[in-house]
Amino acid sequence: MKIHPRKNVRSDLNPSRLLTFRIDERVVSAHEDESILSVARQNGISIPTLCHLDGLSERGACRLCIVEVKGVARLLPSCVTFPRQDMEIITASERVVSYRKKILELLFTERNHVCAVCVSNGHCELQNLAVELGISHVRYPYLYPRLAVDASHSRFSVDHNRCVLCLRCVRVCDEIEGAHTWDIMGRGITSRVITDLNQPWGSSETCTGCGKCVQVCPTGALSEKGKSVAEMIKRRQFLPYLQMMRGRQDESWPK
């Protein structure tokens, strides 16, 4: 579901108002249609994210960007939460940080993330988050699923072992490239990203071979062929430009 506050939800509130509120004791001001995440980042406060990527629609799914809001019992995902006047937001309370760590640990148990031999070693958002949050070991048992690598595409390969199901590939393919080659099959712990009718990527009829999915992938799940271990550095400069230039009014297939 594409929630685009600027276009849909609050169009009736035009023009958007300026609000002042607090993030981590700091007084900030922002438009009411800017997410807490984006306001925090503008003010140099970093909040960990995995499914969020500037230029793509929000999913609110990785739950790493949760923050505490004073007076609200629930933790709120900052990527899809909008500020209110005088709101008090705490981005890194002990509670929030400990949950973030646990979520990250769960992601590490879910699939076989072996950094040492990964093409994205050293350039991986998942790895960076683990370092940032100080995860030195994983408390939960590893699930060790048997997942395959699909290297049938002439230029790219997908290693499901390293996928965190952020669905950036699905979104960029749909929203920016407009091909919708990627989607996600199954549900729950058995979900997996697929191309077309769950066929080898190389046999996809719809893939344009643009490689945007590879560049937005936070981990080594999607990579360019010919890149060896630790060599896959993702380039994303194109995203804001393409988003601006191709800016679709609404998605026929929202997430």
Partner: peptide, 9 residues
């Protein structure tokens, strides 16, 4: 006119 991958999904 639904993407193939969406149908499979």
């Amino acid at each position: 006119r639904v993407p193939l991958s969406r149908v499979y999904a």
